[in-house]
Every structure is written in structure tokens, then in C-alpha cells.
């Protein structure tokens, strides 16, 4: 089969059922925008979780009565705790300097002595940078004599993880919804084309056209609808992305480089829809 024949026939089908074809393309676009939007949301939440978990540190505040000579042995013990990557000592003076740098000197001038405790800032190994991992390390540090309190922000991490999980579940549901919707639309459009051309298809058979010769343009039509829907969805997402990106200063949105997958998904759904339509109605 010549390519020009295929293109001409597809164009003819599109012209014949243009309203239904356009409806299919735009609905596939809408469905893929939904899928793409939640997909990108998931990618960015994952990215945020990863980025935040690498920043999560445990602050081990030391008891006030701890002697200078006890600090170095404690550091050694903390360094031995499973999951600990690095331990940095912050003396009372360092803590006060940091506080003054951040909030100004006025507060300290009202006090007789420095109320801030000395602490160890503990960086966690990468494999422990999960909610349960960080909590475990914090609990082990807390159990060390001389540590008054071990504080970590794993709750923020837990919340983000929850959002990412929810986005992942929504994505799966949406994927099934989009897949079913696209397949139905393309198949229905092919049903309309076949319905409007029944006599013509019979004549094609009678002049010696094989089943594949009759089917190929219909399948290509489905693929083209899916691809067009994918390209339009990508453009819309790009626009949405630039709008959101403008609102979120300081956070680099990611995932658009995977936009090709959306077009490919459109094409595959169009192909499957075309095959289903032909199997059911031809």
C-alpha cells in the first residue's frame, strides 16, 4: 500500500466524519492533560520529597550539665549509631551567634546568660532518609546519655510522602480512566466511519481489497487522533506549567522533558482504539 494512498484515505475519512474526529482529538487531549497534570504533580512531589529528605537533619540537644570532657566521647558514640553520616558539634556560643545573626542582638541583651543548649547536628545516611529511617535514628540518638532531646522534621517528610502516594494513586486511576475513555472514543469514531461507508467497504472487498488494505487507514486514523491529542495535551500542559512556574518562585518544576511519553501514550491508545473499533465493527 502506497503512503500517499494511506494519507489521502485518512484525510478523506477525517473529512467525512470531521466533527466526530475533532471531538475524539479534543477529548483525548483533555484526558491526557488530566493524566499529564497529575503525572507531573507526582514527579514534582517525588522530587520535593527527595530534595527535602536530603536536607533533613537531626538536632541532638545536649543536657546542660554535660562536661566539656564528655562531649568528644558522646560525638564518637553518635557517629557509631546506625544511619548516621556526619556529626557536627554546635557549642552554646555557636548557637547564640547563629541566633543573634538570625534574630538580632536585642533579645540577648535582656538576658543574663545564654539560654541556648549545645547540640550535635546529625546528617543521616541516604538509605535512612525516609520517615521511618529518620525516626529510628532520632530514637537511637535520643537514647544516648547526655542527649536531652533529639529533634527531626520527619513529620513534614511523612506529609509529603502521603501527598506523593495520593498523587500516585490518582495517577493510576486516571490512567485507567484515560485509557478506557480514549479507547472508547477512537473505537466509536471508527464505528461511525465504518457505518457511513458500509456499502463502499463491501465494494472494496468485491474489487479484491484484502482485510488489511481496508483496515490500515482506519488504524492509522486512530493513531493520528491519539498523537494529535497527545501533542495538544503537551502544549496545554506547557502553558499550565509556565503559569504555575511563574507563581512558584525558587522551585524548579520538573518532568516536562518526559512530555514525549504523553504523545506516545496518545498514539498507543489511538492504535488500540483503532484495533478494537475494527474488531468490533468491521
Amino acid at each position: 500500500m502506497r503512503l500517499s494512498y494511506l494519507v489521502k484515505t485518512c484525510a478523506m475519512h477525517f473529512k467525512r466524519a470531521w466533527l466526530s474526529s475533532l471531538f475524539s482529538v479534543f477529548t483525548i487531549m483533555f484526558l491526557l492533560v488530566l493524566l499529564g497534570f497529575f503525572g507531573l504533580l507526582w514527579i514534582n512531589l517525588q522530587q520535593l520529597v527527595h530534595s527535602l529528605s536530603s536536607q533533613v537533619q537531626i538536632h541532638a540537644y545536649l543536657s546542660d550539665g554535660l562536661l566539656e570532657s564528655q562531649i568528644e566521647p558522646l560525638r564518637s558514640r553518635l557517629q557509631q549509631v546506625a544511619g548516621v553520616a556526619r556529626v557536627t558539634f554546635i557549642s552554646k556560643a555557636d548557637a547564640a551567634a547563629a541566633f543573634q545573626h538570625e534574630f538580632g542582638k536585642e533579645l540577648f541583651s535582656l538576658m543574663d546568660e545564654n539560654p541556648l543548649p549545645a547540640s550535635f547536628v546529625v546528617d543521616v545516611q541516604e538509605s535512612y532518609r525516609t520517615e521511618t529511617g529518620i525516626r529510628g535514628v532520632a530514637e537511637r540518638i535520643q537514647a544516648e546519655p547526655g542527649v536531652e532531646e533529639a529533634v527531626s522534621h520527619y513529620k513534614t517528610l511523612r506529609l509529603l510522602n502521603r501527598y506523593a502516594d495520593a498523587a500516585s494513586r490518582i495517577n493510576l486511576f486516571l490512567f485507567l480512566f484515560v485509557a478506557a475513555g480514549s479507547l472508547l472514543l477512537v473505537a466509536n469514531n471508527i464505528r461511525l466511519v465504518i457505518g457511513s461507508q458500509k456499502e463502499r467497504i463491501d465494494t472494496m472487498r468485491l474489487v479484491g481489497a484484502t482485510a488489511s488494505f481496508i483496515r490500515a487507514p482506519l488504524i492509522v486514523e486512530g493513531v493520528v487522533q491519539g498523537l494529535l491529542g497527545g501533542v495538544l495535551a503537551l502544549l496545554v500542559l506547557h502553558w499550565i506549567y509556565s503559569m504555575i512556574g511563574g507563581l512558584l518562585s525558587g522551585f524548579q518544576l520538573q518532568g516536562m522533558e518526559k512530555g514525549g511519553l504523553l504523545i506516545a501514550a496518545g498514539g498507543v491508545l489511538g492504535l488500540l482504539g483503532g484495533c478494537i473499533g475494527i474488531k468490533r465493527y468491521l
Partner: peptide, 29 residues
């Protein structure tokens, strides 16, 4: 069927194609 020519009683011509393309279709096949 490719070795048979059929003249149908009701012609069965493709109305969305011109005369040239009606004939060309058989050769496309």
C-alpha cells in the same frame, strides 16, 4: 477477485471520489 472484473447492476461507484480515483482504487489494491 483481482482477476475478475464486476459491473454491478447499481454501479457501486465511490461517490466521494472522482472518476479517475474510482478506477485508480482498483489498481491501488
Amino acid at each position: 477477485r483481482r482477476s475478475i472484473g464486476i459491473v454491478f447492476q447499481d454501479f457501486r461507484l465511490f461517490t466521494d471520489r472522482d472518476v479517475f480515483d474510482n478506477l485508480a482504487f482498483v489498481l491501488e489494491v
